[in-house]
Design a protein around this nucleic acid. Structure first.
Length: 263
DNA sequence: ATGGCATCAAAATGATGA
């Protein structure tokens, strides 16, 4: 089973590119982030034509997450528990209903910039809630994969130049510690288990020629429960997606990142 | 040090992103 995460930066603005990637890659499951549309504006039909079921948690203009799966999705959870007044659509979870159940998520963790505004403590409240849910998921002792855009650069190896990120919410010591705490619960970062040769970036800014200079960062992750880690067959970053266009659609600033599990 | 680029939605001297 191939499970991907892909921050698409507007599912409708980029639809031709996304569909082309789906046809080529044939993921079994794909977690999408930054839909930037309400549920009713999600392009269900073209994905159904490719054979996918969709569970969507959308939002107008910003945020919005979805799970697409060839097999049915059951037990869908829309929104991260723990802060009822949080109206931002950044979390969806479901179980892929195959011969062996696999729990999957699409996470769009808050960016947190600029530090010093409400955005930064919101990021860390959100991290605490994610840790609580991640702990509950571990207790199920299932094959579970926490996939998404964590807006967290875990280590110095995950950026092109540390000095450019020292004042950024994505690379603060407490942000990296929060990510590490998820791993300390018992999850493994698929990229650590199967490090790719060379480049491991998943995001390149649109600005200042970051892609051309390969000034990227790694912020899109898969955290595997022990049951999932035992079944990890491969880890891949679809870097070439960053440079591709289709029918005038421009690429997202993130690229798809995938794991293959022996399921 | 700043802005650079992209999207949405509104029609901004904008908001947000990472």
């Amino acid at each position: 089973m191939k499970i991907f995460t892909y921050n698409v930066n507007s599912v409708n603005a980029r639809l031709p590119l996304i569909l082309e990637w789906f046809e080529e890659t044939q993921p079994d499951v794909c977690a999408l982030q930054e839909l930037k549309c309400l549920d009713e504006k999600f392009p269900y039909e073209p994905f159904e034509r490719l054979g996918y079921n969709a569970a969507v948690h959308g939002q107008k203009t910003w945020n919005g997450v979805a799970l697409l799966s060839k097999q049915p999705l059951i037990d869908v959870v829309r929104g991260l528990p723990g802060e009822p007044e949080d109206e931002q659509s950044r979390y969806i979870e479901a179980v892929v209903d195959g011969s062996v159940p696999v729990r999957v998520t699409s996470i769009y963790l808050p960016n947190g910039n600029p530090i010093g505004t409400d955005k930064y403590p919101y990021k860390h409240r959100w991290y605490k809630r994610l840790q609580a849910r991640a702990k509950e998921i571990l207790a199920f002792e299932e094959i579970s994969v926490l996939s998404g855009d964590f807006n967290t650069i875990p280590t110095k190896s995950d950026l092109y130049r540390e000095s450019a990120w020292l004042d950024d919410a994505l690379y603060q010591p407490e942000t990296r510690a929060a990510y590490q705490s998820l791993k300390n619960l018992g999850y493994s970062d698929a990229c650590d288990l199967m490090p790719p040769e060379g480049n491991r970036y998943t995001f390149w800014d649109y600005q200042a020629g970051a892609w051309q200079k390969n000034e990227g960062i790694r912020i899109d992750h898969h955290l595997l429960s022990p049951q999932a880690a035992d079944r990890l067959k491969s880890f891949e970053i679809h870097k070439d997606a960053r440079g591709r266009t289709h029918d005038d659609a421009k690429p997202s600033d993130h690229v798809p990142v995938g794991v293959e599990l022996d399921v």
